[in-house]
Design a protein around this nucleic acid. Structure first.
Lengths: 193, 193
DNA sequence: TAAAAAAGTTAAACTAGATTAACATCATTT
DNA sequence: AAATGATGTTAATCTAGTTTAACTTTTTTA
């Protein structure tokens, strides 16, 4: 597996010495998944923090009625884990499933705790990553309330054009909180206009 | 101002020596606000991270139509800042306003950066705080999609009974993403049943 | 390459929640 | 204690988005 995108990503936030890079890579697990494979399963403990080197995943919640709710997609240079389950090492609320074959770099909980002790700068790295993720998540809450379904789709399409192209439409509908039928109607209207 | 709740809160996540506590307190600003006063204003840079010692705030977004959207409430032992604005030191998307007289402990951006350098453990503290906030935020997104307005209100009421009692109903409606009229209807139904 | 499965479309009937508008109650200030 | 403004209620009408169900197109697999 090619570690360069991963190291580039990290060096965007903090700078590591060669020794630190080597230590980091020694405690990280490269893993490949097939399309449709689950990286995390609802009910199981999320044992790793997963960095996507290549491929595409969805994180989703299966509700009591068997309805899927897509919480987020992840592609190259994003993380895809049930963070709540990972940090508390308790059963996951969400599934993470590969929508394409995926190459993933994994931190186990124990390895990450060791790394925090050995390279304290990593606390800073993950603080910054999660800060950004939290801000984006709050922004999404507001938008879900203040924008119409059509506006939300237009925003999604311009913000994540790559994901819009790679992911089945019915999953995007779920991510936007609408039915696939209604998204189909929205796309027809947008195509006309 | 009484710093004990603040120190207790911090010691729940990490442990500080007496010297570290003293250094921390020397770089923090206690401040009082009146009811209705703004701690952060949309468009201004959010200059401080705000820990609520006493009182209650709302963070809200004012949309293009002049409609208020409540993103979150904060009471004792919570934070209330526009984190996106704070971490990037760019104009705030949100307002933070006091719903009661408030006692607040403030970290300026510069002081916090200094503190991170002087007490690296604080990176760990804020990493953990933001991790939890992010997990809660994602959970809220899923719930907004998978639960009805009535279910969301019931969940809110049992999760945050104190806030339900302290905050005007029309603001709770805004937080839940519904109109005050519809919340009124929901409450009538719940009272009947 | 046929067939089966997955993904997408269309349209009619329906519903959760919005809008509007009038009114009621409570709190604050003078 | 009256008046003002803020908060909460009720009910009729309306609409964005759902549901259902039948159908088409694309992709995957045998």
């Amino acid at each position: 597996m090619d570690y360069k995108p991963f190291l580039d990503y990290i060096n965007h936030y903090i700078s590591l010495t060669e020794a630190e890079e080597a230590l980091l890579l020694s405690k990280v697990i490269p893993r490949s998944y097939l399309k449709h494979q689950f990286i995390v399963q609802q009910g199981d403990v999320c044992k790793s923090a997963n960095f996507i080197v290549s491929g595409c995943t969805k994180m989703f919640y299966m509700d009591a009625d068997g309805q899927e709710h897509v919480v987020m997609f992840a592609i190259e240079d994003w993380w895809s884990s049930d963070l709540g389950s990972f940090i508390t090492q308790s059963p996951a609320d969400y599934n993470v499933q590969c929508l394409e074959p995926c190459e993933v770099i994994q931190f186990t909980y124990e390895n990450l705790e060791e790394l925090y002790a050995e390279i304290p700068k990593l606390e800073r790295l993950f603080r910054k990553i999660v800060e950004r993720a939290f801000v984006a998540s709050q922004k999404r809450i507001v938008r879900n309330f203040s924008l119409s379904a059509k506006e939300r789709y237009q925003l999604f399409r311009t913000t994540y054009p790559k994901i819009d192209q790679r992911v089945p439409q019915y999953m995007i509908a779920s991510y936007l909180g609408i039915t696939k039928e209604f998204l189909s109607k929205i796309k027809r209207e947008l195509a006309k206009a």
